[in-house]
Design a protein around this nucleic acid. Structure first.
Lengths: 342, 342
DNA sequence: TTGTAGGCGTTATCAA
DNA sequence: TTGATAACGCCTACAA
C-alpha cells in the first residue's frame, strides 16, 4: 500500500512548481510550455498521480455530485429510473450518490443531512411527504431540488417531473368503460400523495364522462410499501358487488396485487380485467400479457437531471419548473370486452 | 440563496474559538463546558450550519464513501443488489456512489478513474473482465476491491463474493435429469466469465453423474447484454434433436430468453421444461410459476459491504477473501416429469 | 476549559 | 513561461 502522491510530489519529481502541474491538470488555466507539459504528464503517469477530488471541492463551490434519493431501488420502476439518471449524469461528467429512504421520513431526514454536508449541487428525490422544513432549507442553501414521480402539495415551489397522472388514469379507466365495464375498481397510492390524488381524480373524471356511478367502495388507497396493496385487492373482491375491472395505479404495489389475485385463483381477464401502471418487461410475459400504462422513464430521468443541474446557476426566482410527460397506454390481453352488462 | 456559514462564523457568533466548535462537532475529541456546548449548538442551529464533508475528507484518509460499480441497474438482480448494498452501507454510516458500465470496458475505466480521484475507501463491482491494470493499481493504492457475482480469473488476488455457481448449476441440471430429461440445454454467461464457466462445469458434472451424453450443441454462451440470449434460445430450439429442458443460467438474459420462448409459442413445461437463475417476484406470477435458482442477494450485499469496509485497515497480506454463499433451488411448476424417454 | 496556529491538496493571483 | 503564496473549511497539537 503505497501512499498517494500529491501535486507537490509530482512538481518535485518533474523539477517544476506546483503551479505548473496544476496548469497541466487544468488545461486553459494558464500557459505551459509544450516540453514542460509532456514532462509533467510523464511524471504523473509513472508516479500514478491522481488529483484529489476532495481538495478541489474544498476550493470551489458545489461539487460535481448529485444526490438521488429514492424510496427503494428494488422496485423495478425506481431501479430503471436510477439507471437512467446515472447514465444521464455520467454523460454530463457528474456523479450520483444513491440513497434510499424505505419510505421512512426519519431515514429521509438523515439522508438529507448527509447530502447537505456533502454540498451536493442537486437532489433528485421521491419525497416521503414529510421533512418540509429540511426541503425548504435545502432550497435556501441553493441546492437544486427536483421531485420526481411524486411531489409534496405544501411545497409548491419545488420543481417536479412526473407523468401526467390525471390523464393516465383517466384514459386507462376510459378504456375499461369503453369495453363495457360498469364496476371499475382502482388501487392507488396514499391519499396524501399527489400521485394518488391525481390518479383518482382522473379515474373519477372518466367515470363521469362514461356516465357511470361512482362508488367509494371501489376506490382503495394503498401505502407504497408493505402488504397494503394486496389487502386492498382482496377487500375489493369481497365487496357485495365486486368490480369486473381493476386499475392498479400504484406502481409500487403492482406485483403485490397480482400475487394476491393469482393466489385467489382469479381468472384474468375472464373474471377480472386488469390494467397496471408498470411497464416492466415481465408484464408482457405473463399469461395473459398485461395491458399497461407505460411511463417514459428515460424522459423522467433526462428532465430530472437537467433541472437538477441547470438551475444551479442561482436562478431561483420565477416559478418552479413543473414538467409533465405523457404516459402511454399499451393494450395487450388483460382487458375483456363485456358482452352483457346489467 | 444565503451563503453557507463556516465553522468560523459559528465560533464568532457564539463568542468562542473555532477549536471549541470543532470539539462540539466531534464529541470525545476534547473537553467542552456543558454551557458552552449548548450555546454553540444553538448558534449552529439558528445559523443553519453544517460541517462540510469535503474539508473533513481532505484532512483524513479515505472518506466514508463506497463505490458501487454495476453493469446495469435496470436489471432486477443488480437493482436488488444495489438496494441491499446501499442499506447495508447506510447502516454503517457510509455513502454509496453508484456507477454503471453497461458492460463497456471503456466506460468502466472512466468510472474507475473518478473513483480513484475521489479516494473511495472501497469498491464493490461486477467487472467487465478487462482493465486489469487499473484494478491492480486500485489495490496498490490501498482501495479495497470486492468483485461480486462474477470475477476475473487473471486477478486471483481480488476478494470475491458470489453464489456457488458450480453447485447451483449442478443441482438444477440434476433435478431435470431426475425428472427424466435426457436432452438438457443450458444458456450461460460469456465463456470468458467465471460465472459462466463455473455454471457450465456444474452442468457437465450433473450430466456425467446422471450418465447422460454431453452434446456441445446444447451449451450456449450469451453475452450479458443485447439479444444474444434470445438468439441462443432460438438456436437451441432449432437443432436437430432439440432439448426437452433448459437451464437459463445467465441472470441477465432470463427475460430475453423467456420473451423469445413465449413469442415462439413454446409450451412450458409441456414442450420445454425451464429452470432460471432469477428470483424476481414475477417468476412466481407467470403461468406456470417458474422453478428458479434463488440467489441470496441480501447475503451477497452484506458480505460485499463488509469486505469492502473491513479490510481497509491495510491487511492486504494473506490470501484474498473468497466467499461463496449457497443458492436455493425453488421448485415450482415449470419442470415436467418425462414419462417416455428414448 | 479554551484559544492559536499550522496543515490537509488544490487552484488562483500576482510577480518574476 | 514559471514560481511563490494565499486561500478553501476543518481538525488537532500545543499553549494559555
Amino acid at each position: 500500500m503505497q501512499k498517494q502522491p500529491t501535486i507537490r510530489d509530482v512538481a518535485q519529481a518533474a523539477g517544476v512548481s506546483v503551479a505548473v502541474v496544476s496548469r497541466v491538470l487544468n488545461p486553459g488555466s494558464g500557459p505551459v510550455a509544450a516540453a514542460t507539459r509532456s514532462r509533467v504528464n510523464d511524471v504523473m503517469k509513472t508516479l500514478g498521480y491522481h488529483p484529489r477530488t476532495a481538495a478541489r471541492e474544498l476550493k470551489f463551490g458545489p461539487p460535481t455530485t448529485l444526490g438521488l434519493l429514492l424510496a427503494d431501488v428494488s422496485n423495478p420502476f425506481f431501479a430503471r429510473l436510477a439507471d437512467q439518471v446515472v447514465q444521464e449524469a455520467h454523460a454530463r461528467g457528474i456523479q450520483v450518490l444513491l440513497m434510499t429512504t424505505q419510505e421512512d421520513d426519519q431515514l429521509e431526514s438523515e439522508r438529507l443531512a448527509t447530502l447537505i454536508e456533502r454540498r451536493v449541487s442537486g437532489i433528485i428525490a421521491t419525497p416521503t411527504g414529510n421533512n418540509l422544513a429540511i426541503w425548504k432549507q435545502l432550497q435556501d442553501l441553493g441546492t437544486e431540488v427536483v421531485f420526481v414521480d411524486r411531489s409534496i402539495p405544501s411545497l409548491p415551489e419545488v420543481d417536479v417531473v412526473s407523468i401526467d397522472n390525471f390523464e393516465s388514469a383517466r384514459s386507462a379507466t376510459a378504456l375499461l368503460a369503453a369495453h363495457g365495464h360498469r364496476r371499475i375498481g382502482i388501487i392507488s397510492g396514499p391519499a396524501a400523495s399527489t400521485t394518488g390524488r391525481d390518479r383518482i381524480a382522473g379515474y373519477r373524471q372518466a367515470l363521469e364522462t362514461a356516465g357511470l356511478e361512482q362508488d367509494e367502495l371501489l376506490i382503495r388507497h394503498a401505502a407504497f410499501r408493505g402488504p397494503a396493496g394486496g389487502d386492498a385487492a382482496s377487500a375489493l373482491l369481497n365487496i357485495e358487488e365486486p368490480p369486473t375491472a381493476l386499475v392498479v395505479a400504484n406502481t409500487a404495489q403492482v406485483t403485490e396485487v397480482l400475487r394476491r389475485l393469482s393466489h385467489a385463483g382469479i381468472d384474468i381477464p375472464g373474471t377480472l380485467s386488469v390494467i397496471v401502471f408498470d411497464d416492466s418487461p415481465w408484464t408482457e410475459l405473463m399469461t395473459p400479457a398485461l395491458t399497461i400504462v407505460r411511463q417514459p422513464i428515460d424522459l423522467l430521468a433526462r428532465h430530472s437531471v437537467q433541472l437538477a443541474l441547470s438551475n444551479t446557476q442561482g436562478k431561483r426566482s420565477g416559478k418552479p419548473n413543473v414538467i409533465r410527460v405523457a404516459a402511454e397506454l399499451v393494450e395487450r390481453s388483460s382487458v375483456a370486452r363485456l358482452q352483457f352488462s346489467k
